[in-house]
Design a protein around this nucleic acid. Structure first.
Lengths: 404, 404
DNA sequence: TAATAAGTTCGGTAACAGAACGAACTAAAA
DNA sequence: TTTTAGTTCGTTCTGTTACCGAACTTATTA
């Protein structure tokens, strides 16, 4: 890439790249038709892109009348990004290449020592994931890390991250960037999940959506018009603080959140113990439900009622076209079906409710989407507003499970 | 404007227009410095714009060393738009010109016959507002109409519009467009209010905000990242259906909305009657409050509690940087101050809460913002994404009250 | 008159469109 | 099977638009 190509050239280049990324192997003549640019311009740009190693010839067309055309495709391993999902118990890492494939994924239990150890672990997993796909590490351009809590992009710290010790004071972003040698983007894991589902999950194509994660806590990732809603203080989607469930004016609600107290793990377990006298963990309560335990049924019904109200609250405020439930509790069909039945009773217009399609991988996929968008922007659109390359639809992406 | 100017020229033209719109009378040399384009290019574009009648010479600079510069400004009456606020009781219309001034405003009681009569009334008021400013009617390019309820852009109808009869079946958009002879945009009045406050109101410059209107009903206009949140079915901000206040699972809540029943006009009056036995209208209840009526105090306190919870719900979901209250009830300081006191008790992080600055005019101003943005886009940016002209800040806009 | 800034004129270059043309391929006629 | 017509691909060439930068002219202040 030269010093400063003219704005119109950058625009054309973007259109060409978008055509190639989206339409797989494609001839120059087709690109010309699709973009409206002249054949001559396309040839010029293609020559440049091939010289710089971003695209390559891939074959020729045959079978139809007329001269056969040379087809071009992205060089998948010309560049790649890493995506990491840092959970309280597990760390997942994957590589996504320039052709928007999400490649082999590596998983490990989170290093319990926390702090710098976890950062080194993430860096190591990124390298391992790259090795697994025979991608030379130097091709990596950036890493996206999904973390619980609210990351502060400037200071690189992560506020409200109860699961990993030491991340509230350490500059996670800079430290990891140092270890990896590339730019690092931190993002809330639920936000990434929303982006992932929007890209190739159960809400693909719907630009107004909500992803609700219910597990240790309750939180949502929201998209409006295809853009993530971050909020003024990066605190959008903090459903735990919705003012119902318990009395929001109780002092305790300022700590844990009125709704969080009754819909998340702790609340469910407490309620079950109150009713039955027995201590069970959440999977245990779901097992009891299957076995016909009346207390479990009651707890689940109550929880579903609160979740339905949370969904109603989101619908009243942002009116998404689809709502996805996820997280260890939110992805249980027993809960989803109850919520589905209750929603029409507390909200006037019908709401499409679905379970997360990508399951535990959703944040990884979302991170890949974020990383690839950034990658395309920096490599090809040259910072020109309105010249973004949209990610190709689901069909080109496949997930490869790596043996551990 | 020629057939199809090259994309780079369109871009440059936009930058030049933006500089002139924002920086008032400005010399070509200054534009060159600001935009980074060469002096030669600016002269060329300025010549073109002057020929087409969009800008004109306005004077020369003096006082500093060097040759004096010719300054240019927008020709304000080269084009204009009309903006109408259609309320249940009043219709307001105003004209906004190309230099982003909102000019004289005309008000009338809404024609009670409804339907086509109201449409003719709006058309007449637009013409009157133009006449008042000696703007020839032919210069008008489009009209923006703020309406209660949810307008359907395609069919031109307005769903849920209880205040004007016949608007749920009539193609309001097409009919008014026919009467006026220009394109018409319909928009929810609360959404326009949010846009108005964002442009030159109490949240100017804050890109994540909520405008809550409390009056006959309760509704919100939301902006995220400077963009309006419309929602999948144009139903974002329907706060009346937030699932608290009354039991959201009651059948009645599907009709009127659990929260609407206790925070809007009817709910407040009902509650006051329950407590005191006396029937009063809302202004009367506020008067009683001033007079120290204990029942009025209790009703207002309860209402403020519900409003605080509604604000908390919005903050939990979209986390705006500022929240504005408006509408006949929402703009009463007695209520705003109570809500301000209650918010820290039910939401953990501090929330900036303000009253609407533009009062009854807020929708008119919002409509002007929408219309002018469209006008600039169609006239100068030629449909190129990322080449939008942002509206100039508040200082250039003044409101002129027209004698009725 | 010197310094400075505004604005114009004059090459030179990048980017693109469109026409013309050669190359490669298919299918149907000889 | 060979030839030929028709079709599409891709390149070359030419002309236009848009831009920049340097040199130059003009106007103004000190």
């Amino acid at each position: 890439m030269n010093e400063a190509p003219r704005i119109s050239r950058q625009f054309s280049l973007c259109m060409v790249m978008e055509a190639i990324v989206h339409c797989g192997p494609i001839s120059r003549a087709s690109i010309a038709k699709q973009t409206g640019l002249s054949k001559q311009t396309i040839s010029e740009i293609a020559r440049q892109l091939e010289e710089d190693g971003w695209i390559r010839e891939t074959g020729r067309t045959t079978g139809h009348v007329g001269r056969s055309a040379v087809t071009y495709e992205i060089v998948p391993d010309a560049a790649c990004i890493a995506t990491v999902d840092l959970g309280g118990t597990k760390v997942r890492a994957a590589i996504a290449d320039l052709s928007c494939q999400v490649l082999a994924e590596v998983t490990e239990p989170t290093d319990e020592r926390g702090g710098i150890h976890v950062i080194r672990q993430m860096a190591r997993l990124c390298r391992e994931a790259a090795d697994l796909n025979n991608i030379t590490y130097e091709k990596m351009r950036m890493a996206v890390v999904g973390v619980p809590g609210a990351p502060d992009q400037e200071k690189g710290r992560i506020a409200m991250s109860p699961n990993v010790t030491g991340f509230d004071t350490l500059d996670v972003r800079a430290t990891l960037a140092g270890e990896l040698g590339v730019e690092v983007i931190l993002e809330n894991d639920v936000n990434l999940a929303a982006i992932g589902e929007h890209w190739i999950g159960s809400v693909a194509g719907v630009d107004d959506l909500a992803y609700i994660a219910i597990g240790t806590g309750i939180g949502a990732g929201l998209m409006v018009g295809g853009e993530l809603v971050r909020g003024f203080g990066n605190a959008a989607g903090e459903l735990g603080f919705l003012p119902f469930g318990t009395d929001p004016f109780e002092a305790e609600s300022l700590q844990v959140g009125a709704l969080e107290r009754v819909t998340a793990t702790v609340g469910i377990r407490r309620r079950y113990k109150e009713l039955s006298g027995t201590e069970l963990d959440v999977p245990g309560i779901f097992d009891a439900l299957q076995a016909g335990d009346a207390h479990a049924v009651q707890v689940l019904d109550e929880t579903a009622r609160y979740v339905a109200r949370a969904v109603a609250a989101i619908c009243a405020i942002t009116n998404p076209g689809k709502v996805v439930l996820g997280g260890s509790i939110g992805s249980r069909m027993e809960l989803v079906e109850r919520v589905r039945d209750l929603l029409p009773l507390c909200f006037p217009s019908p709401v499409e409710l679905d379970v997360s399609e990508l399951g535990a991988r959703v944040a990884i996929v979302g991170g890949a989407a974020v990383g690839l968008t950034h990658l395309h922007a920096t490599l090809f659109s040259g910072g020109i507003p309105g010249a973004e390359i949209t990610l190709p639809p689901a069909r080109v992406v496949k997930l490869v499970e790596a043996a551990q």
